[in-house]
Amino acid sequence: MDTTLTTQRRFLRPRIDETVEQLAARAMPDQPLENAVDRIKGWNLHIFAMRRPAGLLLGSDVVFVEPPRG
């Protein structure tokens, strides 16, 4: 039986009390922080656009750290 998992869109789980900035820095340590935060916000509209209040980071969230795969 094939037990290989295909590669899917990468995500992180927020750590307890982690801010968006801290998560962005963790996800993209080589990027300037502002760029990293912008990317995180753009890839996670379920958190930063659809939620009230927008940007409220929840402990259970799935936070994507790359854009959707083609």
Partner: peptide
């Protein structure tokens, strides 16, 4: 979400809790 649009309690749980 609850009646005020706020996420229900389970959504505040970190993975460690689940």
């Amino acid at each position: 979400v609850d009646e005020n649009g706020r996420p229900v309690p389970s959504r505040f749980a970190a993975f460690e809790e689940l």
